[in-house]
Amino acid sequence: MRTTPLLAAAALAVTALLPGHATAAGPPRLAGCGAGQLCLWAKADFKGARQTHELAGLDVDSCVPLPTGTAAESLANRTGRPVTTYQSQECAETGEFETYPGSGTWLPQSPYRVRAFKVWER
C-alpha cells in the first residue's frame, strides 16, 4: 500500500492533537497529569510552571484559591468530576467562571486568568 503525502500529513495532524503525543510541530507532551488530577499551567499551551491537585486531597464543593500572586492560563481536568475555574480568587461569580467536565478536558487557553477553582460532586 502506498501512502500519499496528503494522507501522511492528515495522520500526523490527528496524532498531534492527542494528549501525550507530540511532533516537532505539535503540542507539548502533557505527561505527568494523571487520572484523578487537575493540572494548571501558568502559561497558555500547557507551558510554564504546573500545579497539580489530586482529587483525593481536595474538599469537594469548596473554593480552592491558587497561591497569592499566581494564576493559570491552561488546564487539564482528569479528576472525573466537573471543575469550575474562576477569575476571582474567592470563587466569586461576579467575575468570569467556567465549568469543565471531568472526563478528560484539555484547555490550552483559558479565556481569563484562573485564580481559583472548585471541584463538584458529580
Rank of each mutant, 00 (worst) to 15 (best):
Y86W: 15
V119Q: 09
A56M: 09
Q109D: 03
A11H: 14
A25C: 05
L12H: 07
T99E: 11
T70C: 08
R2K: 04
A56P: 12
Y100R: 06
L55A: 02
A24P: 15
L40W: 12
R50G: 04
G36W: 06
T99G: 11
E121P: 15
R113F: 14
E93R: 02
T68Y: 10
G26T: 09
T23S: 00
T68P: 13
T68H: 06
G36C: 02
V60L: 10
P5E: 00
R115T: 00
T68C: 07
G57P: 03
E121L: 14
Y100T: 04
G20F: 10
Q87R: 08
R29C: 06
L7W: 09
E54A: 01
V64R: 10
Q37Y: 14
S110D: 01
P108T: 10
S88T: 09
T70A: 03
G102A: 09
R29H: 09
V64W: 12
T70P: 04
P5F: 11
V83H: 07
G102S: 11
P19Q: 02
L6M: 04
A76C: 07
S74F: 14
G26N: 02
G80N: 02
R2W: 12
K118A: 11
Q51C: 01
G32V: 14
L30A: 00
E96A: 01
G32F: 12
L7T: 00
Q109A: 12
P67F: 08
P82Q: 03
H53N: 05
R115F: 09
Y112M: 02
R113P: 04
G57R: 11
